[in-house]
């Protein structure tokens, strides 16, 4: 990647988000380069999920600017569905479509949005299932899978749209400890093949090993950011230190 000029995949400037009176994001500015893995950490209620959800407009920003791959998504006239096709999202509670088996979960969006014809979508879906190690689960329904398997299917489902960017909101928080590893493995693999990723997580080991940059958020603000070595080894902000002492 070094010889390529790094382009900006996500540009956020002075983002604000309020729910009625409650100001959840106060003034967030952040750039993510193509291929970069940014890990967001911070205490509960600090606005991590809200920030992530603003990046694909599941929450509409109250102020500021968000540019994804050159498209300003705070512009009400932009075609948000086109942007979302390129931005995959993985949720804490998986959100697999319960009324469909795994294969149809994976094929729904590519076929419905006419990105791929049925046969191509099917091949792609099976290939992605193979990548997350679940080739044998194509016909299973979500309720027949373990948590870790569900989350790997959810990742595969997002990948079927061939996204440039992947957003992860605490992808392992709802999992039994013995299933965390299998999901993190898939995410590591994605990072290694150059996927642009923004990951909200409490898995500090993952942040250290895979993150290019770690961001510490509290009270709707980015209080500190830097390389994993800097943040974990020598945090500057007392609130960061405090938080890390509690979780490490």
């Amino acid at each position: 990647m070094e010889h390529k000029e790094k382009k900006i995949a996500i540009h956020v400037s002075h983002l604000k988000k309020s729910f009625k009176q409650l100001e959840v994001l106060k003034d967030i500015s952040l750039d993510v380069a193509e291929g970069e893995v940014v890990v967001i950490i911070g205490p509960s209620g600090s606005g991590k999920s809200t920030l992530l959800r603003c990046l694909n407009r599941l929450e509409a920003a109250s102020g500021g600017e968000i540019v994804i791959d050159g498209t300003d998504i705070t512009d009400r006239k932009c075609d948000i569905n086109k942007v979302r096709e390129r931005v995959g999202m993985v949720f804490q509670h998986f959100n697999l479509f319960n009324n469909m088996n795994v294969l149809r979960n994976l094929m729904l969006a590519p076929v419905d949005l006419k990105k791929q014809d049925r046969e191509t979508a099917r091949k792609k879906a099976l290939e992605m299932l193979g990548r997350v190690g679940l080739s044998d689960k194509a016909q299973a329904y979500p309720h027949q899978l373990s948590g870790g398997q569900k989350q790997r299917v959810a990742i595969a489902r997002a990948l079927c749209m061939l996204p440039d960017i992947m957003l992860f909101d605490e992808p392992t928080s709802a999992l039994d400890p013995e299933m965390v590893g299998e999901v993190l493995e898939v995410m590591k693999h994605l990072a290694h093949i150059g996927m642009t990723m923004v990951v909200v997580t409490h898995e500090m080991g993952f942040a250290r090993e895979v993150g290019d940059r770690v961001i510490f958020m509290d009270g709707g603000l980015i209080l500190e950011e830097g390389t994993p070595e800097a943040i974990f080894g020598n945090p500057q902000n007392p609130r960061t230190r405090d938080f890390l002492n509690k979780v490490l």
Partner: peptide, 12 residues
């Protein structure tokens, strides 16, 4: 979450 997941994939 079902609606959000579908929307996040770009479905209207």
């Amino acid at each position: 979450g079902q609606m959000e997941a579908a929307r996040s994939l770009g479905l209207p």
